[in-house]
C-alpha cells in the first residue's frame, strides 16, 4: 500500500497539489472577499479626502495627521484610546482576576459548584445589547435597582451613567458582569488539566491554598492565561456594543465613555444629530485600530508563548 501511494505521488505530483489547492480555494476566496478586500479598501480610503460621501483625491497621510495631531480630532482620539487602555487594564484586573479566583473555587468542587458554574456562565449567553440595556435600567438614577437599594441606607440618587467620574466604571462593571463566565471557564479548563499528582505532591510538601495557587496552578495554566489575555486585549480595543447601548454614540457624558470603536463609527458614518460622514478619517482610525490590535497581539503572543515554553 505504502509503495503504491509513493508511486502515485511520484507519478502525479501535480494531482496532489491540485487536490490541496481545490480544498483551500473556497476558504481562500471567502477570506479574500470578506476579510482581505475590505481591509485593503479601508487602507486605501484612509489616504483619500472625501467631499460628501465620495473620495475626491489622494491626500497621503493627511487623515492620519488630523486624527493624531490636529485639535479637536486628536483630543478625541487620545481620549478614546485612553479609555480603551483603561478598559484593558481594568478587565485584566477585575474580570480576569475574579475569574481566576472563581475558577480556583470551582476547581475545589465545593458543594453546589455545578450550579455556581452555570450561574457564572449564564450572562455570557446573553446579547451585549440586552446586557447593556439591563444595566442601564439597573443604574437609572431615579428608578434603578442600584439607587433604590442605596436609598434604603440613605444614599441619594447617584447618576452613575451621567457623571463623568462614574460612567466609565459603570460601563466596565456591566461588561465584567457579562463576560466573567468566559475567562472563568477557560481558566477552569486549564486548571483541570494540571496533573493531580503535582497538586498532591505540593500538598504533601505542605503547600497551602495561596502557595498552590501562585506557585503551582498559575504557572501551569500559562496557555489559558495567554488566550484570556489576548482575547481581553482584542475585546478592549474593539469594544463597542455595551458603551454604545449604555452611553450612546457620543460616549456621554462629555466623552467620558468614548472608546475607539464609538469614535470610529461616529466619524465614518456620522450620526443624525451630531455630524457628517467622513470615510477618510474614519478609515484612518480603523487602520490605526487594526495596527494597534494586530501589532500588540503579535508581540504579546511571542512574549506569552515564550513564558509557556519556559515552563
Amino acid at each position: 500500500m505504502n509503495n503504491g501511494r509513493r508511486h502515485t505521488k511520484k507519478a502525479f505530483p501535480w494531482r496532489r497539489s491540485l487536490w490541496i489547492a481545490s480544498l483551500l480555494a473556497p476558504a481562500l476566496v471567502v477570506m479574500v472577499l470578506l476579510v482581505l478586500w475590505p481591509l485593503l479598501s479601508a487602507f486605501r480610503l484612509a489616504f483619500y479626502e472625501f467631499n460628501g460621501l465620495q473620495p475626491t483625491g489622494f491626500i497621503g497621510f493627511e487623515n492620519f495627521r488630523k486624527v493624531l495631531f490636529e485639535q479637536p480630532y486628536s483630543g478625541w482620539t487620545y481620549n478614546a484610546l485612553k479609555h480603551n487602555i483603561i478598559a484593558f487594564v481594568a478587565l485584566m484586573v477585575f474580570e480576569n482576576g475574579t475569574a481566576f479566583l472563581l475558577a480556583y473555587a470551582l476547581l475545589k468542587a465545593l458543594p453546589g459548584h455545578r450550579i455556581h458554574q452555570v450561574i457564572v456562565f449564564l450572562p455570557v449567553v446573553l446579547s451585549a445589547v440586552i446586557v447593556g440595556f439591563l444595566w442601564k435600567l439597573f443604574l437609572h438614577p431615579l428608578f434603578g435597582l442600584v439607587n433604590q437599594t442605596l436609598a434604603l441606607v440613605g444614599i441619594g440618587a447617584i447618576p452613575w451613567l451621567g457623571n463623568e467620574h462614574t460612567a466609565l466604571g459603570s460601563v466596565l462593571f456591566a461588561n465584567v458582569w457579562h463576560w466573567l463566565g468566559f475567562p472563568t471557564l477557560v481558566l477552569l479548563a486549564g486548571m483541570q488539566r494540571v496533573s493531580k499528582e503535582v497538586i498532591e505532591a505540593a500538598r504533601l510538601d505542605g503547600a497551602g491554598d495561596y502557595v498552590l495557587m501562585t506557585k503551582i496552578i498559575w504557572p501551569l495554566i500559562a496557555p489559558s492565561v495567554t488566550i484570556v489575555t489576548i482575547l481581553t486585549f482584542i475585546g478592549s480595543f474593539n469594544w463597542f456594543e455595551i458603551p454604545y447601548v449604555m452611553a450612546g454614540l457620543t460616549g456621554s457624558p462629555g466623552g467620558a465613555t468614548d472608546v475607539l470603536g464609538l469614535y470610529f463609527y461616529r466619524t465614518a458614518f456620522g450620526s443624525t444629530t451630531t455630524g457628517i460622514q467622513d470615510f477618510g478619517q474614519g478609515s484612518a482610525l480603523a487602520v490605526m485600530m487594526f495596527i494597534i490590535v494586530a501589532g500588540v497581539t503579535a508581540i504579546a503572543l511571542r512574549y506569552l508563548r515564550r513564558r509557556e515554553i519556559e515552563l
Binding site: 437609572h140 438614577p141 431615579l142 441619594g156 440618587a157 447617584i158 447618576p159 451621567g162 457623571n163
Partner: peptide, 11 residues
Amino acid sequence: PPGFEGIDYET
C-alpha cells in the same frame, strides 16, 4: 430631577 446628569430623553 436628582441625578439629572443621568436622566435621559425617555425618562
